[in-house]
Design a protein around this nucleic acid. Structure first.
Lengths: 258, 258
DNA sequence: GAGTGGTCTAGACCACAAC
DNA sequence: TTGTGGTCTAGACCACTCG
């Protein structure tokens, strides 16, 4: 049985009338909101197909073109993936394409390398002021902290410190991390049902502290690329904060400006 | 008199037939190509309005919806800007919104600051191997080299070294740069008719050399963010290579991952 | 062949801007 | 009032995938 109403008849035509509604949104955006609710609620899981455009059109009592426009926007935001002849699927971090969207590191010269994540430590702690602000928590709220090394072709390139709210992730253990094959976001998606859909990064150049220098096998004080990231799930909810130190001797952070 | 054919009747239906054409592209993409040609040729200049959707539909002998889809894609690529009730306009670097698309520097704390470009030097030279490769030139081809400082609120934050092909820019002088009020890309657009539409950046952390350290008022050897950029004009033609050294003590490079 | 997304059309009407 | 882009519809047909 559907959990949510399947028709939006009552919302049609809201823009008609004397004064334009201050909260007006076109039909296809209302459809988009409904689809987002389904995704957020987990009714359609990552990797699964959603109903066909024509079925959704019938369900929502709108034309197929209107559903299409809603899906178009969501596909442009990498929330859905269309495959001609097969259907429309919920995007998943299991898809290797998602990996490069969230780790923009490329070798200075040479082809593509396989990345390997090596979990170092994992412990529970209380949120300090900075983490609390970034993750919209209260100071003292339980969090998980993960430290891990990222290697390319066996060489250490990134050391990450990752902060995860306990309210969402419960307890994360080093064993869980070590047992999992795949990216961290794939791990979050499959083990916790949390899907990262967007992130903000702030980059700076900083001198290597002693611990990081050892891990990355560079001299203490040598320049490292500091990448601070807040990741968001549905509804712009921040669910991860991390700081990575990148050794850019043999790799660089690649970005495309459009 | 139009320089190019205004009807694409002859291209309609190319996808029909027994075997699917290897070079098939839908009608709206053919329209898009035609519109791109107009932009590249300068028939419609930055800031100007292009003909209305219905006029283009009549001209090209297709439906308005097909023109619309072509324009939709170009608007998504920041080549055109739609304004309801007014028309569709060619994007321009005179628009301050374009500025932040190509300079992703934000203060670590505090609001928005006004940037100021200070040209330092400008001379002609011959392309070395690296510049030649980046700009798809031959070694020895004439280029212009510009050094300039970028200040925020009077403080030096970025020192740029910029390489411009002589074949496109002719001769650039320090006077031209000093006389111009506005961003560099705005300058290129208005003085040379060259519009940057896309760029690739590679970021690394490097130690400050002596000259840059003095300009940026940081210690020699302290970490700076190195940003190498290749900018492209229409047809993915590389027309600028630059290397910037960013002081990230009070600013950071902001990036959004989707 | 059946079902899916992708393209194209034609027409109606709405929202916005400018005269 | 006119012209622009923005939305919505209904229907036709094409391209791709799979059984």
């Amino acid at each position: 049985m559907p959990v949510m109403p399947d028709s939006i008849d009552s919302l049609k035509g809201v823009s008609s009338g004397a004064a334009s509604s201050p909260t007006f949104s076109p039909l296809y955006r209302q459809i988009k909101s409904l689809l987002l609710q389904r995704l957020e609620s987990g009714e359609w899981r990552p990797g699964e197909a959603i109903p066909s455009e024509s079925e959704l059109a019938t369900r929502f009592n709108v034309s197929q073109g209107t559903v299409r426009k809603a899906i178009d926007e969501m596909a442009a935001e990498n929330l859905l993936i269309r495959r001609q002849g097969k259907g429309t699927f919920v995007a998943s971090h299991d898809d290797p394409r998602a990996f490069f969207r969230f780790l923009r590191l490329v070798p200075l010269s040479g082809g593509i390398e396989q990345a390997q994540s090596v979990p170092l430590e994992c412990w529970r702690a209380k949120a300090g002021p900075e983490v609390a602000r970034m993750l919209e928590l209260n100071i003292g709220d339980p969090i998980n902290i993960v430290r891990r090394l990222l290697q390319f072709a066996g060489k250490p390139v990134v050391v990450d410190e990752i902060y995860l709210p306990g309210s969402i992730f419960g307890t994360v253990t080093l064993e869980m991390l070590r047992d999992y094959q795949g990216s961290l976001y794939s791990f979050f998606e499959n083990r916790f049902g949390i899907r990262m859909i967007r992130a903000e990064e702030r980059l700076r150049a900083v001198p290597a502290d002693r611990a990081s220098a050892e891990l990355l096998r560079v001299a203490e004080g040598s320049p490292l690329l500091s990448v601070e990231r807040v990741s968001f799930s549905y509804g712009d909810k921040p669910v991860e904060w991390r700081r990575g130190l990148y050794s850019t001797n043999e790799h660089c952070y690649f970005n495309e400006l459009g």
